[in-house]
Simulated assay, not measured.
Amino acid sequence: MHQIKEDPVLSLRERECIQWISRGKSSWETGKIMGISPNTVNFHLKNVKHKLDVSSRTHAAIKAVSLGIIEP
């Protein structure tokens, strides 16, 4: 029996963070844009990386775009 793997579900904040990172923003810049601290941005990005099973922000952004989670 084959198990169908579903696409990961990211929270709104996780999607916002990875969207800004995909546009080249730093955690500091993303935090300023979103009105949260850089540490909170990094917390969300850590969750994104875990959910997408990747080890870098760049890979997370690429995978999020390829899965249609965020816009290119």
Rank of each mutant, 00 (worst) to 15 (best):
H2N: 09
H2D: 11
Q3R: 13
Q3T: 13
Q3P: 00
Q3Y: 12
Q3G: 14
Q3A: 07
I4N: 08
K5L: 11
K5I: 12
K5Q: 13
E6L: 11
E6S: 13
D7R: 13
D7H: 09
D7W: 02
D7M: 05
P8S: 12
P8L: 06
P8A: 10
S11P: 01
S11K: 09
S11C: 02
L12Y: 11
L12V: 12
R13V: 00
R13Y: 00
E14W: 01
E14H: 04
E14F: 02
R15T: 08
R15H: 01
R15F: 00
E16P: 00
E16I: 02
E16S: 09
E16Q: 15
I18T: 10
I18F: 08
Q19C: 02
Q19Y: 14
W20H: 11
W20V: 01
I21E: 04
I21F: 11
I21S: 05
S22F: 03
S22L: 01
S22H: 10
S22R: 08
R23A: 05
R23K: 15
R23P: 00
R23G: 04
G24R: 08
G24Y: 10
K25D: 02
S26V: 04
S26Q: 08
S27W: 06
W28G: 01
W28A: 09
W28E: 13
T30P: 00
T30H: 01
G31L: 03
G31F: 00
G31K: 02
G31Y: 01
G31H: 03
K32Y: 02
I33D: 01
M34G: 02
M34A: 05
G35S: 10
G35N: 10
I36W: 01
N39S: 14
N39F: 08
T40S: 10
T40W: 02
N42K: 12
F43D: 02
H44R: 04
H44I: 01
L45G: 02
K46Y: 08
N47A: 07
N47H: 12
N47R: 15
N47S: 12
V48L: 04
V48A: 02
V48H: 04
K49I: 03
K49A: 03
H50P: 00
H50T: 14
H50W: 07
K51F: 08
K51R: 14
D53A: 12
D53T: 10
D53M: 08
S55T: 09
S55F: 07
R57F: 02
R57C: 06
R57H: 12
R57L: 01
R57S: 15
T58M: 07
T58Q: 14
H59R: 13
A60D: 05
A60S: 13
A60G: 06
A60V: 04
A61T: 02
A61S: 13
A61Y: 05
I62H: 07
I62R: 11
I62F: 06
K63N: 05
A64F: 06
A64M: 06
A64D: 01
A64S: 15
V65F: 09
S66L: 08
L67E: 07
L67K: 15
G68E: 09
G68K: 12
I69F: 09
I69S: 07
I69A: 08
I70N: 05
I70W: 06
E71G: 07
E71L: 07
P72W: 10
P72F: 10
P72A: 13
